[in-house]
Design a binder for these strands. Structure first.
Lengths: 223, 223
DNA sequence: ACAACAATCGGCAGTTCTGCCGACAATGGT
DNA sequence: ACCATTGTCGGCAGAACTGCCGATTGTTGT
């Protein structure tokens, strides 16, 4: 991160069947000065055949592929190119899929749609030995772990705890299905203030929509 | 005063008994402009007593401490400082130690010797809700997890009787916070079809918004 | 054969939400 | 006195959602 001259670029490959997403990722990676995208594949067969020759440091692997499962592709790749780190990139956040991927040798797990900053952060994280994953994914893993023994402390409950009383009031209204303007009426504040509270709630809970926040609210309530 | 967003520094504390390592980490953290190191401790007792007052966002906790186990320290700390994330920092990579640390409430697990980039990356990762750990650690967790547990995710009550199977699928996606376009990708159908299913769901459940439908979904699920 | 339904698509207007730029007053702690 | 936090507001652009007008293809039951 400091003044290190002549830093070799991080080599990357992408396996993704959706042309739109593929193009999107290519654009993001192309703009990064410290990243070199060696190849982009739309199916698992091509990827498994070509990637060992390209030897990228990082592979982003979609799970929904037309010919094979992304997990299958990881299993094929891992033994062959030991220096490659694989980051799964998918919409599935169920525990089974996550665990199968990681057990197959994946080094990270991110949920689509992925933001450009998130993607580049993942590239650098994984190339420096880290494990990029969203907080929700990590929480699933840790929670599953904690279930067997003691109480898991780092859960939704803790994220809820950092909400202020007013923010919790707003979130409860959202959980009942009220519109912004209805929340405003109920709490005797302006539409704009509801708006601001919700912005803060999203930031603190690391979510990007009302329904994600409500889902987390219910998870916490019934856990 | 406002033109520079006055980004608050990430506050950090370190618990580490080896003086050399302690100094090394202090130097690294001191050089980071966005990090403020509030305290460095050489034993667990001091750390457990002082850290709740300092309220750092991140604590790096060694496991080999002279007076107590680092896991013990985490257990003491977690209930008291809810906003603090703990990253274990140790030479032990055996499954039991990792397991116990995470169960005690740790948010991450890194192996010594730690590089400066790695340390700073971990600070930022954990302060933004992530979970720093090396890929080897993550794999160990996954593997040992795979032994004990089998997934039991699908507990769908068959109420919501009026909804068709497809509509319930869509509703479950909504309950996880997906956007229309994400549901479309997940179910391999078009945006417009998702739209139509949701119209039917709203009509059958007598609601007028996504969040109301999701609230009803959760009510049914947990009743 | 026909009706009813389920599942899949399209367009379009209007509403709602989200993100980002700001602001100000009150409070409490250092 | 100063700073951080909280709660309260405004505007605006773009994204997402909702509602309503359609449609075709199958399946199921009568």
């Amino acid at each position: 991160m400091l003044n290190v001259p002549a830093k070799p670029k991080i080599t990357v490959a992408v396996v993704e069947d959706d042309a739109r997403v593929r193009q999107h990722m290519a654009n993001i990676l192309k703009r990064a000065p410290d990243v070199a995208c060696l190849g982009i594949f739309s199916n698992a067969e091509d990827a498994v055949r070509e990637i060992p020759q390209l030897r990228p440091m990082v592979v982003f692997m979609d799970i929904n592929l037309p010919d094979h499962d992304g997990v299958w592709a990881v299993q094929q790749l891992s033994p062959r190119s030991l220096q490659t780190q694989v980051v799964m990139l998918t919409v599935h956040d169920d525990t089974d899929t996550i665990f199968n991927s990681l057990a197959a040798g994946a080094s990270g797990y991110l949920l689509k749609p992925i933001q450009s900053a998130e993607l580049l952060s993942a590239v650098r994280t994984v190339s420096s030995g880290g494990v990029p994953m969203t907080s929700n994914i990590a929480r699933k893993i840790i929670q599953s772990f904690g279930n067997a023994t003691t109480a898991s402390v780092n859960s939704n409950r803790e994220e809820m705890a950092c909400l202020t009383a007013r923010e919790r009031e707003v979130l409860e209204c959202l959980a009942k299905g009220y519109l912004y303007k209805e929340v405003a009426e109920l709490l005797k504040i302006s539409y704009r203030t509801v708006h601001t509270h919700i912005e803060h709630i999203y930031e603190k809970l690391h979510v990007r929509s009302r329904t994600q926040a409500v889902a987390m609210f219910f998870d916490q309530k019934h856990s």
